[in-house]
Design a protein around this nucleic acid. Structure first.
Lengths: 168, 168
DNA sequence: CTGAATTTTCAAAATTTTTTGAAAATATAA
DNA sequence: TTATATTTTCAAAAAATTTTGAAAATTCAG
């Protein structure tokens, strides 16, 4: 397989992969393109390479910057903005975990806490089972939360990073 | 908050949560409904409770059964099939991890392995950087794979489960 | 400032995904 | 076996999401 072909295949697969994770295809493709690109690219470069419109590139690039996966890079002498992806995949994973935790896990745990405060007879079987399920989810969510926090801090945390190394 | 209200809220939030993870809203809602339901439900029960069509219930229930999150339960004397969700959330999480690993991570790692076999000059800067990114992703993917395997096997594995307990 | 280059916005169009519901298939009781 | 209940399928409709592209806003060199 040739390099160009391999790049193309990677970009397409990364895009398909993304859709399974609730990320839209184009955003994942742009991310993939920037991952395998030697230099930072402009919006026009991306438009041309992926054959998509200016507005589309602009919105999805913004999304990637919001996720902390892509950086705006200023190249002196060049007028246009350039964009580059973080290439250390461990950092990418960490960043995604951090964001999803903040955007999804934390609010869900908060909601579960509220749902635990229903006013119902403690002896009501229905209510009892509901509370069991809810607090079970909350407990597991909190555990996940702690583990993820440690992973995020692994670089600064000798203990966690040695444990993680044991799995490598 | 009343129990009925809390259930409703839980079902809706779980549905919204699902869409962020590439699961369709209805499937997540059915899952939530079964989670907080005291008895197993029939397709008709679900139709009525969530106000959705028969076909929709049928397809999504099948999806949940495929994911191993819901079981068909035979109730003697009753003609209709009943369905019940696994309520131990740790098992639910394990099952989801197992399936996603099989359906997504494993194929992705396989693809990355293929992409490493491009025929290009090892000195070509483009090619070199591409291979670095690809093998970086593959390495991280493999690490995740190992960690997830251990989590899945945690119940049967003293070592892992004691490590996981340390985080609780 | 001015004006050209670049970026952003957003309503409308295109596409993709989900849902419906009726028909077909299957299962079960009598 | 026959009649009825139940489940499954799937083409068409509806809904949701993504994409386009042109206009508006912003940036910046001169």
């Amino acid at each position: 397989m040739k390099l160009t072909e391999a790049k193309e295949q990677f970009i397409n697969s990364w895009g398909a992969f993304g859709t399974q994770w609730g990320i839209n295809r184009t955003m994942a493709q742009i991310h993939a393109l920037l991952l395998v690109s030697t230099q930072p690219l402009t919006q026009d470069d991306i438009m041309e390479y992926l054959n998509i419109s200016r507005g589309n590139v602009n919105m999805n690039i913004r999304g990637l910057v919001d996720w902390g996966l892509v950086e705006r890079v200023i190249i002196s002498g060049e007028r246009k903005d350039h964009f580059a992806a973080e290439k250390d995949i461990w950092k990418v994973a960490t960043q995604i975990i951090k964001e999803r935790k903040k955007r999804e896990l934390d609010p869900m745990i908060k909601l579960l806490g509220q749902l635990e405060n229903i006013d119902a007879d403690k002896k009501d079987k229905e209510a009892k089972q509901f509370l069991e399920v809810i607090s079970g989810i909350k407990r597991t969510g909190n555990q996940a939360d702690k583990i993820l926090d440690l992973m995020i801090k692994a670089e600064e945390n000798w203990f966690t990073s040695s444990i993680l190394k044991m799995f490598k």
